[in-house]
Amino acid sequence: MNKFLQRWTVFAGLVVVWQLLGMFAEDPFFPPPSDIVTAAWEWWVLEPRNVTEHILPSIGRLLSGWAIASVIGVALGLLLGRSDRAMEYAGPLLVFLRSIPPPALVPVFLLLFKTGTPMQLATIIFGVIWPVLLNSVDGARSVDVTKVDTSAVFQIPRYQWVLGVVLPAASPKIFAGLRVSLSLSLVLMVISELVGTDNGIGSQLIQAQREFDYTRMWAGIVLLGVLGYGLNTVLLAVERRALAWQPRSRDEQHA
């Protein structure tokens, strides 16, 4: 309880200060939090159509892009990580592709796919696959020699080697990559929507800006913050369960 207070006092204090300043200063760029909440209420709760037409498609694109990138990234990463030959060929290419800023590809994908969901998905997938892929490669390489030997001596079948040894051994690194790519997919979702479509949270942000409706703009920003926070929290919970087998000392670090 004490910890809870400690944690949220400063946060609540800042919100209150903002509220007071906002009420007295009446700066159009910084509306008080109460106005933002009201705007959010009117925008999304009183008009559920906005949720189904903008927020849900955004989340859908974000999650499907991230999921596709994750599956491809992990599969390809484990394969490359266990094959020195493949890595020799693909390594330099990976380094180059990874360093292309994904937003710079938005125009490329725009020309390739025109606007709409395919272009947005392509942007998200291409942008977020690298952390997962490179971490999976790293993780697959980190299987120690004794475990490799043990698996070879017991002549385990191939599927057991991949799913029972390489995947779990690489999983701490994979999860680290998944977390990075999840927050990156939020960024890319917004970017692709700022340019590419007339639906989604990003396009609503731009819309609010064009209408000089700064309160709604703030509501959109807060929504994205909450969304990022929520997604990260869920993934952390999943990670904690999936990696519960790790020796205890790590849990203490998290606490």
Partner: peptide
């Protein structure tokens, strides 16, 4: 058909996730 090996480094030869 098969043999088994017990390695010196038990902490690495056992799988921590099992």
């Amino acid at each position: 058909s098969h043999l088994a090996v017990v390695f010196q480094d038990y902490s690495r030869s056992l799988f921590p996730w099992l």
